[in-house]
Design a protein around this nucleic acid. Structure first.
Lengths: 157, 157
DNA sequence: CTCTTTGCAAACTGTTTGCAATGCC
DNA sequence: GGCATTGCAAACAGTTTGCAAAGAG
């Protein structure tokens, strides 16, 4: 699921129509390195296509998810749904300050399913999330040391 | 953070008042082995205290979280906030069918922070979540094989 | 030409907030 | 008695749904 054209072809072959809106959304998905929310995608697509509606973003993302062409994760900070263009196994780095999520390759040891600590669960996938602060937010926190609102927002989960 | 009395003492020493409502909420938290949502806690507390309000549940849970006495995680299935009476390092088993979350002990190898794949992030904690189907839901799925709605709900993330 | 998609508005869910009445210490 | 807490109602954020108009194939 790399290029826009591949997404378009795949989407079309599964019986869906290609519209300018969907083309623009696919483009943004391909370009994104973070895990955008619907609102994020909307902001970016709007730049070139001001009349697109947020509903169309939601609808399209949901269809992509249902086709298994993207994944979705929940942000812990704001509870919003984030979309992930990758559906293969990989881990996440989550910034507790700006809520940005980026991918990291799974360290080699990460795939082992826990033996019979699995409590009878049938496990189908695992996800490791590392929580911390991204470089930009670390810098910001250093620069603003002592300013109360910043402190509060940083240390509030 | 084991017994109700410990929670009460801790909460009180930090300058908060103890009310019957809070006592009842703490009780439920102590007893829970899953990770209840505010609504779950409300249902359980209501059984013995019918006049308690959902607002009080939310307020109390938020305070506990701010005091670091409980943790919170987001459910991927319904997007709701789930509360975790444990704040130490451990992993989660998540049922994709009923959205129940239970704890598992962290397998020994799990604590290593990824070397310099960490992209400049300052990592403060990690969380491993194993997604799958709990014993009860597996049984349910077997019993109802062939029934469409069940199939749909099972396989829709 | 038909059936899908769009985009508005309204509904909905989970959560938070404002505020008067109540209750803890 | 003073200040924190409760619980109602209303506000909110993120997401979904109903539906008429527009558009893809």
């Amino acid at each position: 699921m790399r290029t826009v054209e591949e997404i378009i072809t795949n989407f079309q072959q599964r019986g869906h129509k290609i519209t300018p809106q969907r083309r623009a959304i696919f483009q943004i998905i391909c370009e994104s390195n973070t895990h955008p929310s619907a609102e994020d995608v909307y902001q970016q697509v709007s730049a070139n296509m001001p009349d697109i509606s947020l509903t169309t973003i939601y609808n399209t993302m949901r269809e992509l998810k249902e086709l298994g062409m993207i994944d979705a994760v929940n942000a812990v900070g704001d509870g919003s749904l984030r979309y992930d263009k990758r559906t293969d196994h990989h881990d996440h780095l989550y910034c507790l300050h700006c809520n940005q999520i980026i991918d990291i390759e799974t360290p080699s040891g990460s795939l082992e399913i826990p033996k019979e600590k699995s409590m009878g669960y049938k496990i189908v996938k695992q996800q490791v999330t590392y929580y911390g602060y991204c470089p930009a937010c670390q810098k910001n926190m250093r620069d603003k040391t002592g300013r109360e609102e910043t402190q509060a927002s940083v240390f509030n989960e």
